[in-house]
Amino acid sequence: MNEQAVVETVDLTKSYRNVTAVDKLNLRIEEGEIFGFLGPNGAGKTTTVLMLLGLTEPTSGTARVCGHNPTREPLQVKRITGYLPEKVGFYEDLTARQNLAYTTRLNDLADEDASSVINEALNIVGLSDVADQKVGKFSRGMKQRLGIADVLVKHPRMVFLDEPTSGLDPDGANQILDTIAQMSKEHKITIVLSSHQLPMVQRICDRVGILVKGRLVAEGPIERLGREALGGGRFRIEVQVSQPSPNLDESIRRINGVVSVEKSGDFLFITCDQDLRPQIAKAIVDSNTLLVQMKIQDYGLEEIYMKYFREG
């Protein structure tokens, strides 16, 4: 606890009339990490982000963003944080550059400095050649990229991205994710990213938190969550053999790294921490059993997600 966390919440709660959108959330996000906020629609991800930005008042509990209380000092928080809303919008009659210029002016940036900052941001998101076109003609993906540029011109210390890839095609989504990862690395920006899309979170996040019905049901690096969720290794290997010898599963179990072995007929289901296919194959052959086929599945967030969501 000696290093100050960028985001810290203590029992953060938000209820609307009779619904509790966020229930006693305790969260800690360190400087420079990419934190993924996972959860189904309506789990309270956006509400949490809005509370951290000071756009919504929490019902109880406290939040601190870079040492500031968003409810009491919203301006300080907004000065150092960037926010990309889920359905980001721009003034359609203005060009991309004019839209960003408005943001820089709202951030009290002098006009002389602003133009270089804007050019740099447009370069990063790859919109330099359409900078002087009206935003009304932009595609969804371009607007999303402009949204990231809009966040970048503030030179934020941390950034909240609300569903940054929703409604984008895979190619567009990947571009956005690459930009986000690059942004975090090059500018040392802490990123909080909320999403219900697993693969993207898995790709770039250092740590995830799973939010179900306003409650944080799991939190930590993806591998650890996987192990917790499955009670075993990250990999699941399915082996089909013919005429298995009776002590086969015993010899497989003895391989270093194997977590569990289940046997049903000619099939063996093995969970393990690493890809142990060569060792398993050797064990099968050594026990004079014929190997028919072997399949490996990489356990990802999907399983973790399904497990927690069902529990929630």
Partner: peptide
């Protein structure tokens, strides 16, 4: 969608 973006500015 411009309102939430503007209000997140200082």
């Amino acid at each position: 969608g411009t309102l939430s973006r503007i209000l997140s500015q200082p």
